[in-house]
Design a protein around this nucleic acid. Sequence first.
DNA 1: TTTTAGTGGTGTACGGTGTACACACAAAAG
DNA 2: CTTTTGTGTGTACACCGTACACCACTAAAA
Lengths: 227, 227
Amino acid sequence: MAQQGAKRRRPLSRDKVVAVAVALADKGGLESVSMRALARKSRVVPMALYKHVANKEDLLDAMVDVVFGEVDFPTGADWRTAMRQRAMSMRDALLRHRWAIGLMESRTRPGPANLRHHNLVMLILREADFPFWTAIRAYNAMDSYIYGSLLQQQNLPFETPEEAVEMAAEIIAPPSLAEEYPYLAEVVVELAKRGFDFGEEFESGLNLVLDGIERLRQEEAMTTGSP
Amino acid sequence: MAQQGAKRRRPLSRDKVVAVAVALADKGGLESVSMRALARKSRVVPMALYKHVANKEDLLDAMVDVVFGEVDFPTGADWRTAMRQRAMSMRDALLRHRWAIGLMESRTRPGPANLRHHNLVMLILREADFPFWTAIRAYNAMDSYIYGSLLQQQNLPFETPEEAVEMAAEIIAPPSLAEEYPYLAEVVVELAKRGFDFGEEFESGLNLVLDGIERLRQEEAMTTGSP
DNA sequence: TTTTAGTGGTGTACGGTGTACACACAAAAG
DNA sequence: CTTTTGTGTGTACACCGTACACCACTAAAA
């Protein structure tokens, strides 16, 4: 009795399937996640997946929810450090799973981790006495910046400064173009000299946004009168 | 003689192919742009397209360049209004072609309109006496905000306030969830009361970023000393 | 005018994709 | 035991991007 039969069935589960999909995407990008490849990696025939996942859309939805689930919040800190931490953690998660940003556009059915995340952010802001609509504005501005920043980093044609110069030089290669786009040429030159640190740049912009939010909050407190 | 033959060949061109592809994507979304559908719409056999376009990637690259080409700049205004105008125009273009944002992530080979655009933005900032790295930071922050904002608008599960309430109610439907996510519930309620204007919200955040950039510039001018 | 070269359009074919549907079989319930 | 309920299988279909060989037409050369 018991499972010494050596080919006892150890069934998959939705979670396992999604996890394998995430791993696959992390390694080879989103386009390497096909139902067939996923099935192969799960040692199962393609159609078996459909017992755990409604269809591919459903799978992708689940995948982005995994990413949201990896973002963590500090608790008990003031709103600014809490929001800051969240932003950094979100950025880390999106860099760990570079396919995620591309999925956000097109996924419109938020999963539980996503809902939990949104709820937590609003909690932080509201508990810090943000008026409702100020909180919405702040949240919106901040997430816009975070997502956009990652989106841009992803579609820049380089990752390291060296690559940057090489690539840029290639694009601007025809010398006439350096004259047609003089300010772009300057970018190439300066980039070569000093390099470009995405993380640093991200934090800088983040502070800029946080400053703006802080000011928004203070103005609001002024006009409304404090309790 | 000349072309009364009624079946004179009127050959396609790369531009025509790309234009048809854009039109197709505008109407039915990116996933309705298949080489076969594109060929059908161009009254031509699929393989004919490959005489004008290297492959589908090439086509997609060309499509995003069309979008960049539609963004226009005011000339002769101060940097702030110029940048503001550009942001609004960019937003309009991205809303006119909702598939574009999704394409940005993954496209890493900028077309001529894209290059021209980048060059122009840097021109505006540099002519306004932004130090180089401040200009880079400003540009980066602003575009991050713009793209992110659109990305968010796109993946929100609603477009009008009514849809918002309906959708949100559906998601939070199990009454237990309203207790699990009280702050999210508040969002639903407030959204129902007052609605949500994407355009207004965009401008608000944009001002926040522009303020931040202005401050960045002034600080820089302080520490460096003015000429 | 006839010839020639080159370009743009065609037809066929291949290996990939997501998934509908009918079936087989293992595990749990009676 | 038998029955019920799921999970895994096999086959099949429509669609995708595109390689390759071919043909038709246009425009330049003769």
